[in-house]
Design a protein around this nucleic acid. Structure first.
Lengths: 241, 241
DNA sequence: GCAAAAGTGTTCACATTACACCCATGG
DNA sequence: CCATGGGTGTAATGTGAACACTTTTGC
């Protein structure tokens, strides 16, 4: 059997393909933050008549001389003032009618930012943090994008220590555990959690204590990024389905 | 801080954005197969002058009235005659100069097919199976795409039983183990492997034996897809980095 | 003194690993 | 009879889960 259509193939034939250059490409960033023991996402109110009063992810069209990673970093920086944030491409959404302006395919990214750092820089009242668990409907296919990115975040925090991007440099074990619980949507045993985290050898006791807490203050730790990047990632093989 | 540029924002403002509609979008499919105890990938020779004699993934431009999943299914069907194959989007590649024809962003998919079924339908001599481990350079950024998809495949076969898409319906445990070893690039203990797979309860002994093997024939099994889809996937939480 | 969270070990069940011998078949 | 892989079990180790009491601080 051979190909059934006679359309030009871009990978094999030097044909005129300008008829196919009618797409716009966008990025949409699911910007996660952690505040008030809750996983939050940064949203903006859509001004499009089709989506009046609905909330939208932060996104933008990609320029013709820009790649996807650069575009999403640009969105992050323009909208939050933050640089050097964690950013990861998750999935590209391409439903034909997903955008009223025309054929726009959108690459979804998720980002992990420190809400405290953000508050210092940004007071734009179009932008608001929303509890992820309370979000109802959103503009475009953004609810689907959010769910997809949340699922990816949940998988990823169990494999790599990216979760520390959501905390300040110094944190207590309670904060860290609350964060894991908020992200994963589960309750964890406190003693087992502490044991597990300590045995990684990646938490540094900085000999400081929490302050201004209405209970016994806990110790503060930092994450040892240096040591982590030097540990060669063990190649774990476990078939589990 | 507020946004620093005055470019229109597609998610919030109903502006004229036609200046951004200059992209082409393509899909590239990493089609994996398993033959001769080796993980293979289906490649085609590029006819583009820029990539003479280099091998390319199977891909094509996406039509303006087509979404990405449909486009990759179409490529699969046109090129291999196979339908109902496993197909999963992995990552979108967008380097500005990745395609000589212009600004083409490409969504990479991987696919798992049964090489035997394919041979029956297809004898196109532009297409060849290549051992994944022996591939040197490729056209475009396709080597990077292949590596990215292989990595995703390796992760995914440990989480979901998609690997059976690479085998025939009936298979011996040796074939299954060789396949895991080829995909993951590791050696597995035979006894522990058998124990592990049997305890899933998802292999069905069909009371048939291998034939035409130059040694003691092994039992044949099928995978119980039905039972798997009924098992509610356990929500496993394990922080491991 | 009371509320709230910090800090701390042990036990049990289960999963993973390492490891060796006899058996069935084809040639 | 020989080569090749099929088929099988056990012991040791490691990991995850369950579980309660004392201590420290702010109020």
């Amino acid at each position: 059997m051979t190909p059934t259509s006679n359309r030009p193939n871009i990978n094999t034939s030097p044909v005129d393909i300008h008829n196919y250059f009618g797409f716009a490409v966008s990025v949409d960033c699911v910007i996660f933050g952690f505040d008030d023991n809750t996983l939050k996402v940064l949203l903006i109110k859509s001004d499009l008549p089709e989506f009046q009063e609905k909330w939208s992810l932060l996104g933008d069209l990609v320029d013709l001389d820009e790649d996807l990673d650069s575009a999403s970093y640009r969105v992050l920086k323009e909208r939050t003032g933050l640089e050097n944030v964690y950013l990861e491409q998750v999935h590209t959404f391409s439903a034909i009618d997903r955008h009223p302006a025309g054929r726009v395919v959108s690459a979804a990214y998720f980002s992990l930012v420190n809400v405290k750092h953000y508050h210092l820089l940004q007071n734009d009242n179009e932008l608001h943090w929303h509890a992820v668990s309370e979000i109802q409907d959103m503009a475009f296919d953004h609810k689907l994008i959010l769910e997809t990115c949340l699922k990816r975040l949940q998988e990823k925090v169990q494999e790599e220590p990216i979760i520390f991007n959501l905390l300040e440099n110094k944190f207590s074990l309670r904060e860290l555990q609350c964060l894991y619980e908020a992200v994963l949507g589960v309750k964890l045993d406190r003693r087992n959690f502490r044991k597990k985290l300590f045995t990684t050898g990646l938490l540094v006791d900085i000999n400081e204590m929490e302050e201004n807490v209405p209970h016994r203050p806990g110790k503060l730790y930092t994450f040892n990024h240096n040591r982590y990047s030097k540990m060669k990632k063990k190649i774990f093989v476990g078939i589990d389905f």
